[in-house]
Amino acid sequence: MRFSVKTGAPLLAMALALTACGTSGGDDEEASGSGGEAGTCEDVAIGYFGALTGSAANLGINIRNGVQLAVDQFNEENADCQVALEEYDSAGDPNQATGLATQAIGDDSVIGIVGPAFSGESDTAGPIFSEGGLPTISASATNPDLSTNGWDTFHRVLGNDASQGPAAASYIADVLKSEKVFVVDDASAYGAGLAEIVEESAGDAVVGTDTIQTGQTDFSATVTAIRSSGADSVFFGGYYAEAGLLVQQMRGAGVEATFVVADGVKDPAASSRPPATPPRAPSSPAPASPRRRARTSTPPSRTLSAPRRRPTRPRPTTLPT
């Protein structure tokens, strides 16, 4: 996968372990099916479900933009089968996800969902989608338990944390040659679950653990604990907003342990300077889900509108997936 990212950020010894995402393709096979199904696509929509606002919004915005691109290209190629895109902005909040899932179930035109993006919201929305028979495919929710609830509608296209966690641990041991690992998690369904697996996989190499909260901005206690442990690597299970602040505060305190994270942190915002204002907590209210017809293309600037980057800093030219 090729991408180019320029954040102008100082060098961080930060490594990221994550699963390369896949997509349901079939792009070149569509031609054979077009033309023969005229009229059957009337009032049909797919939904994007996940954060478009909140502290980890960039992860969701990238996915939404990918869905938007696919729908736009599809509609351009299939004049007689126009598919709409509905957006369900959960702000990444499990509590908001239930109402939004119910809303999606109530819209008969919505027959498939890309998402939910995060594990916590997948956990609360999953039973509702299953009950309503609405198929979902997540590009990013990695909590292993999500696929074991008997939800017929659940799918994801990336390896769960039972594959990512051990991979991160083996990277720490075999590539970084680290024998002292400090494990931090953000208490979320995603971060805590992943950190627990890394901790188990790393075994005796774990010299300490700590838990922070999403929305937290002062990590001095955690940094002190890391320093005291003598760790030469730190694994953080969580999202990019807290990760960026944590690693910056580690470096500011002279702690040079290698910082290892997973795909919840794979956003340029993690390695750029923190925002002037603290990140918003995921519980910030979500705006009403906008109903947009998919034929309206998204302005390219939306991909680059990372909301919390300083305007004077260079923008990423392409966001990795």
């Binding site: 060098l11 961080l12 490594a15 990221l16 372990a17 994550l18 896949g22 994801r156």
Partner: peptide
């Protein structure tokens, strides 16, 4: 269960601010 049959995990690193 809805899990992908093919799984690959890649490591990325931040070098001079680039992933």
């Amino acid at each position: 269960n809805g899990e992908p049959e093919n799984i690959s995990v890649w490591a990325y690193k931040v070098e001079n601010g680039e992933i």
